[in-house]
Design a protein around this nucleic acid. Structure first.
Lengths: 331, 331
DNA sequence: GCCAAATAAGACAGCGCTGTCATTTAAAAT
DNA sequence: ATTTTAAATGACAGCGCTGTCTTATTTGGC
């Protein structure tokens, strides 16, 4: 940077001003500096700025598992925004609970401008407290518990599950099974509540054997299906807490020779890529994941700039029911 | 850090030594320092170390598109290794070609310990040259072009495609179509060559209308299928360059009322998650993506430590044919 | 035309570490 | 017992920037 300053005939501080879009730099000097910088291929060092200044140009994305369509979307969306504002993304993995050591490690060593949390760690109190203590602006995507000092972006999981269940009911189904999601994810309980409430609202009893555990994985969907289809009084419809599990259920049903949706309707959640790939394509709840991630990013960046106001009321996005071919009217 | 030094009664340099596993620190002082550090919850600052030292504890992963099962696996694997050796991952997106400005920007501002390139940018000469110029140890996963100063990790794409094609032939197929991958990916041409060679080896003519373009996406698979199935002389088997496209083909075939694999055999490549989710499950080529990513990481870290020897000969991993249900003997 | 306020620029210290070099102490070799 | 070598430590500068404070130069309001 000193080279740029010298060749442009200004002080380093002025060069710094240009690269930080600060006021009080005359147009001509600015132009000259930019010219020289381009010639020398100069870029301020991320490490040095992070050390010297108050901004680090680094945002953290803390995830539990970096795989899956959902996280891919979040990642893509956030990476997009990072590029737009010229900062960099550091991805860290925190397996549920107990990774407190790593958490402190990361938080103490890296200066983040902001941190974005995805489920389920966005509801891990240990993580939240550590983040709060460190003072890093934090955003939580699809969080459950409230933390009104942090940006929160969600959809109304309860309502979505409620509506999907109602849709199933409107198609004539009464024996509707539900496959829960990973209990560590806050959305799992909301979705289950939505299902139960809808059933009750329509005077349908929720039989406990009709509500089975799941972990959001394809395999767990298969396992749930095995259990459900072994029942004496089989369900005519299954509402799975996500599309991966719904796909597992679909596969098992077909292996057993059941026609979907004729003999078994299946609904999923998320509108994953695979929802439209399996056949029949899955009826599901579409949540605007990318939009949510972008919002989380933008809001947390605003917090960082001090605009604490509107930023801290949860941003609730709208979902939509996507009716495809895996659900049919009960004959 | 100065606090730790003071409380432990040593110099900062000694504390630094402990945190960098350098020699020449007595056991008792080391213990004392670790104790004090734990108490104060001290961790060396990433930014400061990066500025002051020669290591940055940051590795970069440059991708073209952060979505998809393939990249997820790479990401997961690399994140694993990062955690193991205590460094951090910065993900950067480079859309094919032309992003030279961003490239220089990133390379000039961030000091990386190593950079890992995935397809297709691992074959982008502009990127390679910039990386070379910057002197950052680089690893390329699934690269095509040679760059013998960089770590390279692959499978024998040609051979894999060759064997899959042979397998199809061994099942009695002669009218075997091929759906190409994104031409920007080096593996696409290798796979196509493998297919062609196998056909020729077995005295089968490669009809040009039987080789159609694709972009590795589900949609492009569908498009390819439309073209292929509209042919007067339809193929009895289709070999797609990846599983996503194969799934698209499968979907179209079924929509047209064709039985898979009875009337049309379909083979994919990669052994993506979706390969075992669609039904029938796809016969495909499994490449050990995670192992490859890990190897790339470990090798490039060794380069970084100066062991240039064996590290620079390409690491060729073994693939395997996974025979599932989407391919059947020609009736 | 005079003083406030805004604009434009620089000097300087210091962020929190590590590399280099110098120094001391202990162990090994003669 | 004396030199050689290795082990253990610290002093100090400096990595490449930015924050703070100061100074000089314009503007504008009355």
């Amino acid at each position: 940077m000193s080279d740029v300053a010298r060749l442009a005939g200004v002080s380093m501080k002025t060069v710094s001003r240009v690269f930080n879009n600060e006021k009080y730099v005359s147009e001509d000097k600015k132009k000259k500096i930019l010219e020289v910088a381009a010639e020398l291929n100069f870029r301020p060092s991320l490490q040095a700025r992070g050390l010297a200044g108050s901004k680090s140009y680094i945002v953290g994305l803390f995830v539990d598992d970096p795989s899956g369509d959902y996280i891919s979307k979040v990642l893509r969306s956030i990476l997009n925004r990072c590029e737009a504002i010229g900062c960099h993304l550091v991805v860290e993995v925190f397996k549920e609970q107990g990774d407190e050591a790593k958490l402190r490690q990361v938080l103490n060593s890296i200066k983040f401008d902001a941190v974005i949390l995805s489920a389920p760690i966005c509801d891990d109190m240990v993580v939240l407290n550590a983040l709060r203590a460190s003072g890093v602006p934090t955003a939580r995507i699809a969080a459950g518990v409230t933390a009104d000092d942090m940006v929160k972006v969600t959809i109304d999981e309860f309502q979505a599950a409620f509506e999907m269940t109602e849709y199933l009911i409107s198609m004539g189904h009464e024996k509707i099974a539900f496959v829960k999601g990973d209990p560590n994810h806050a959305c799992s309980v909301d979705r289950e509540r939505g299902y139960i409430r809808a059933m009750q609202t329509h005077g349908l009893r929720v039989k406990h054997e009709m509500v089975v555990a799941g972990m959001f994985s394809y395999a767990s969907g298969r396992a749930a299906a095995e259990a459900l289809l072994a029942l004496e009084d089989k369900p005519t419809a299954v509402f799975a807490s996500n599309d991966e599990m719904a796909s597992g259920i679909l596969a098992v049903a077909r292996e057993r020779g059941m026609k979907v949706p004729e003999e078994l309707s299946i609904a999923g959640f998320d509108d994953d890529a695979i929802a439209s790939i399996v056949s029949p394509a899955l009826t599901t709840v579409k949540q605007p994941v990318e939009e949510m991630a972008r919002t989380a990013f933008d809001l947390v960046m605003k917090t960082e700039e001090g605009e604490e106001d509107a930023v801290l009321t949860p941003s609730v996005h709208s979902f939509s029911l996507v009716k495809r071919d895996s659900v049919a009217k009960l004959a």
